Amino acid sequence: MLSRIADSLFWIGRYVERADGTARIVDVLRLQLLEDPAADEQTACTMVLRGIMGYDEVGEVDYEGTSRTLFFDTANPNSVTGSWHAARENARRARETVSTEMWEAINTTYHRFNSFTRGPATQHHLGWVRERSALVDGLADTTMSHDDAWDFLVLGRALERADMTARLVATGASDFGPGWGSVLASCGAQQAMLRTMRGVVTDRTAAAFLTLDRRFPRSVIAALREAEERLTVLSPDKDRVGFSDEARRILGQARTSLEFSNPDRVLHDLPDRMQEVQQAVVDASDAIGARYFMSAPVQEWTGEIL
């Protein structure tokens, strides 16, 4: 496969998942302010922009301004608008590889999203973005051959999902963050959590579920494992000692440091552990770019604190 095509597919997966994850983070903020009238809006918005999304300069902010920045800011490549624009551009470059249905879904989403009124992000906006992201993911899985092209797309999706879930978990672990119920709802994990825990939900079990559960596809562990599997398929490692794939080594270390640690210790140091996951995603993305996408620089988050 051409390097530029693999690069585009990788970033389609990342940007579609980034749009979904950013919408979920904004939804956490919305639910927090809605369910807790005593919550300080300035503090909550600052925590999301600076602590979770990594913006260095944050002045006086409220929900309307925060949602505009994360949702409708066309100059921000990490906003939902910017993510859909980047996903569309990458899909256009890989037009001969992605399926017709997938291209139409991405193109239609981009144009319809641009027709929205640029106001505070509402429940309708947030839900629509999540539905469209799920549609694109479903079309990729059902209308593309599961070959190298699909592997690169899913690899990007898995890396971005690990990063975004780590950010969401960090909001729940923050002293000024929303309750774990809001975080679970934003991850679409409420029903799965209730079934797994037989209806007993505590802060500890919610954090453990989103971080360490191997069967919930949005957990940090599951996303890291999926990324590892895609890398293994793309380049089976036949070395008898060590790994020649640097990205796979980085992700394996991040996963095993969570999976084989005492759960109580992981949950006790949750913000630091989630920061480590985010750094591992950045390092793995750099390694993947160096190995497979030598023709172009690796695209990264801008302004994030690591």
Rank of each mutant, 00 (worst) to 15 (best):
Q123C: 01
Q123T: 14
H125K: 01
H125R: 02
H125N: 15
G127E: 13
W128N: 08
V129Y: 07
V129T: 14
V129Q: 05
R130H: 14
R130T: 15
R130E: 14
E131R: 13
R132Y: 12
R132S: 14
S133M: 04
A134R: 08
A134D: 15
A134C: 05
A134E: 13
L135C: 09
V136M: 08
D137P: 01
G138F: 10
G138Q: 03
L139Y: 15
A140S: 15
A140E: 09
T142F: 07
T143R: 07
M144R: 01
M144Y: 08
M144A: 10
H146K: 12
H146T: 10
D147V: 09
D148I: 09
D151L: 12
D151I: 00
L155W: 03
G156Y: 01
R157Q: 10
A158N: 00
A158F: 01
A158I: 02
L159W: 00
L159A: 08
A162D: 00
A162M: 01
D163C: 05
T165W: 01
R167T: 06
R167H: 02
V169Y: 01
V169L: 10
A170F: 03
T171N: 00
T171E: 05
G172L: 04
G172I: 06
A173V: 03
S174G: 05
S174R: 01
D175G: 14
F176V: 12
F176G: 06
P178A: 15
P178M: 08
G179D: 14
G179R: 04
G181I: 03
G181N: 13
G181K: 00
V183C: 11
V183D: 05
V183F: 06
L184Q: 07
A185P: 02
A185L: 07
G188C: 08
A189C: 11
Q190G: 06
Q191S: 14
Q191K: 07
A192P: 11
R195M: 11
T196F: 09
M197Q: 14
M197G: 01
M197F: 13
R198W: 04
R198M: 09
G199T: 04
V201Y: 06
T202Y: 08
T202C: 08
D203S: 12
R204W: 09
T205F: 05
T205P: 06
T205I: 09
A206E: 02
A207Y: 00
A207K: 00
A208S: 14
A208T: 01
L212Q: 01
L212V: 06
L212M: 11
L212W: 02
D213Q: 11
R214E: 15
R214I: 09
R214Y: 10
R215V: 10
F216C: 04
F216S: 02
P217D: 07
R218M: 07
S219M: 07
V220A: 09
I221C: 09
I221L: 13
A222L: 03
A222S: 15
A222K: 02
A222T: 13
A222P: 10
A223I: 11
A223W: 09
A223P: 13
E228H: 05
E228Y: 04
E228I: 14
R230A: 12
